[in-house]
Write a protein that binds this DNA or RNA. Structure first.
Lengths: 241, 241
DNA sequence: TTTTAAAATTGGACCGTATCAATTTTCAAA
DNA sequence: TTTGAAAATTGATACGGTCCAATTTTAAAA
């Protein structure tokens, strides 16, 4: 796919070598040696090593070298966190359960001031308002309200919206949603939450709201997801700089 | 502190300019212009912009420019681990409120099976059990239960634990906690949550649990944090690979 | 006016170099 | 043998350059 980038090639090769236990002393060759071994610039080596370090696979010590994180080999599952694709059809299917979608609302409205700034729209632009209930094995798990600019997908229909919009984009329009900026919090459930998600009054919802971006950086969807609390689990590897 | 680095200086300046709304059109100057304006190399500009992009503060579109993420301004959170925060104590202080700690329990127990795998311990190892109530301006906001291997900090005391453990490590032992693996979810509040955090029965807690690592990759603490729901807002830039 | 193709703009990848800072190694002096 | 300063090692920061790719702008053609 995109593996023709120099630093990615080296990244993958180093990763493989680490798992093949090619560095039993837990110490990688120094950067200058790697530079000449791979025949690339030191910047590319550093870039690859930085990715590995950020993923917790190696750690670096100035003056002494780059080392394999012993924990990574022994307890690899710990580091195999899912960057959390909650809210995407695919990640639900990955869970082994059968996903379902019930469209609660599909309409077109003028973009509010807030949407104009968040989605980079002009004042005369319109957006779809898409409200869906998501199910897993017929169990309701999430109320999703999304706003998508008409001009990005003018042909959107209720039928398309009954499935995965992201998959539609990828299959039919060759555009990919690769990034999102999400804000995650907990809230008491509202009456509507309780009815739609089968919650009792003391049970909360997890709220994930934010923007989904296309791979070219265009803000694509403004989304608000209210999840049954048992179905929200967000994993993250966090840097505490 | 470390702000004498070129890219960090620019990073902070750009951050300030963004929050001062110096780019009302949400578009930053292009990289080459920034390069000549700041009188530094384009690499340094790129590095600063990349940090901003990774934090979700800006996003970039090749061919068109670099833009401010409008949502970031609205969603700056209390427990924001991104950016330049150290531990929980520091990230609270960063918000302008006065942090407080009340120690609920400080004891030593044998490591459970789970702790043994997560903290990389042997079956005969012991851990501190540290239970603390965290306050902001005297308001209780979080119940924190942490488990730390004795052998890492044999001299830990109730006094030390009344302050920031991470700061103690950094000041006195020259060790830094740089990473954590966190799992974030929502739960109904328990009786104890309600009493300690002043919650009513329908109000939930946000739960953040996981492992904190030292900079050399050693797992340092197994932690469980139950937050008053109003104080938990977690921002994340998510890559949907 | 609309369409289309060329040009300019703008971020991305990569290279090679110089200098600095933390750590380890070496080796002479005590 | 032990100590301690100098040297070597090794990652970090920064510079400035080349070429490329996606997008927008410009301007000519229809």
């Amino acid at each position: 796919m995109l593996a023709d980038l120099v630093y990615k090639t080296i990244l993958k090769d180093l990763e493989k070598r680490i798992f093949d236990n090619e560095f039993p002393a837990k110490k990688l060759p120094d950067e200058r040696t790697l530079t000449s071994q791979y025949g690339v610039s030191r910047s590319s080596i550093k870039r690859a090593l930085n990715v590995l370090a950020n993923e917790g696979i190696v750690f670096k010590k100035r003056g002494s070298g780059t080392f394999v994180n012993p924990l990574y080999l022994k307890n690899r599952s710990l580091f195999n966190y899912e960057g959390s694709n909650l809210g995407v059809t695919d990640s639900m299917r990955a869970n082994g359960k059968r996903p379902g979608i019930k469209v609660l609302d599909f309409s077109v409205i003028p973009a509010t001031k807030e949407m104009q700034t968040d989605l980079f729209l002009a004042s005369e632009d319109f957006v779809y308002r898409i409200r869906r209930l998501r199910l897993l094995d017929d169990q309701p798990v999430m109320i999703e309200t999304g706003y998508i600019p008409i001009k990005i997908v003018p042909e959107l229909s209720r039928t398309i919206v009954s499935g995965s919009i992201f998959n539609y984009l990828e299959d039919k329009k060759n555009q990919t949603v690769t990034k999102s900026f999400l804000s995650i919090e907990a809230q008491p459930s509202t009456k509507e939450d309780q009815e739609l998600l089968n919650l009792s009054s003391n049970e909360p919802v997890g709220v994930m709201s934010g923007i989904f971006f296309l791979d070219d950086g265009t803000p694509f969807e403004l989304s608000n997801m209210r999840l049954h609390y048992k179905y929200m689990k967000y994993n993250a590897l966090v840097e505490l700089k």
